[in-house]
Amino acid sequence: MKVASAQSGSVTVVNNALALGFSGTLGNLDAYISAVNRLPMLTHEEEISLARRLRDNNDLAAAQELVMSHLRMVVSIGRGYLGYGLPHADLIQEGNIGLMKAVKRFDPDQGVRLVSYAMHWVKAEMHEYILKNWRLVKVATTKAQRKLFFNLRSHKQGLDTMTPSQVDSLAKTLNVKREEVIEMETRLTGRDIALEAPTDDEDDKFAPIAYLSSDSSEPTRVLEAQQKDRLHSEGLEQALAKLDDRSRRIVEARWLANDDGSGATLHTLAAEFGVSAERIRQIEAAALKKMKGALAAFV
Rank of each mutant, 00 (worst) to 15 (best):
S262E: 06
S262Q: 14
S262M: 09
S262T: 05
S262I: 05
S262F: 04
S262H: 10
S262L: 08
G263S: 06
G263E: 01
G263F: 01
G263H: 00
G263M: 01
G263W: 00
G263D: 02
G263Y: 01
A264H: 00
A264I: 00
A264K: 04
T265H: 07
T265N: 03
T265S: 12
T265R: 06
T265Q: 06
T265P: 02
T265I: 04
T265C: 02
L266M: 10
L266A: 10
L266Q: 10
L266Y: 10
L266G: 04
H267T: 13
H267S: 15
H267A: 14
H267L: 11
H267I: 07
T268H: 07
T268Y: 05
T268W: 08
L269I: 08
L269V: 03
L269E: 02
L269D: 00
A270R: 04
A270M: 00
A270N: 02
A270L: 02
A270I: 01
A270P: 00
A271M: 04
A271T: 08
A271W: 05
E272P: 02
E272V: 01
E272G: 01
F273H: 06
F273P: 00
F273Y: 15
G274H: 07
G274K: 06
G274S: 06
G274W: 10
V275C: 09
V275P: 00
V275Y: 08
V275Q: 04
S276T: 13
S276L: 05
S276R: 06
S276K: 09
S276F: 04
A277C: 03
A277H: 03
A277Y: 03
A277Q: 02
A277M: 01
A277V: 04
A277P: 03
E278W: 05
E278A: 15
E278I: 12
R279Y: 15
I280F: 08
I280Q: 03
I280E: 02
I280N: 01
I280A: 03
I280V: 13
R281W: 09
R281H: 12
Q282D: 10
Q282K: 11
Q282G: 05
Q282I: 08
Q282W: 05
Q282F: 11
I283L: 15
I283D: 04
I283Y: 10
I283S: 08
I283R: 09
E284M: 12
E284Y: 07
A285D: 13
A285K: 15
A285I: 09
A285E: 13
A286H: 14
A286R: 15
A286Q: 14
A286W: 06
A287Q: 00
L288N: 11
L288F: 12
L288I: 14
K289N: 10
K289E: 08
K290P: 01
K290Y: 05
K290L: 09
K290R: 15
M291P: 03
M291C: 13
K292R: 14
K292I: 12
K292D: 13
K292V: 13
G293T: 12
G293R: 14
G293S: 14
G293I: 10
G293P: 02
A294E: 09
A294P: 01
A294S: 13
A294I: 04
A294M: 07
A294K: 08
L295S: 12
L295C: 14
L295F: 10
L295R: 11
L295G: 11
L295N: 11
A296L: 09
A296F: 07
A296I: 09
A296W: 02
A296P: 00
A297T: 09
A297H: 05
A297Y: 07
F298K: 03
F298I: 05
F298D: 03
F298W: 12
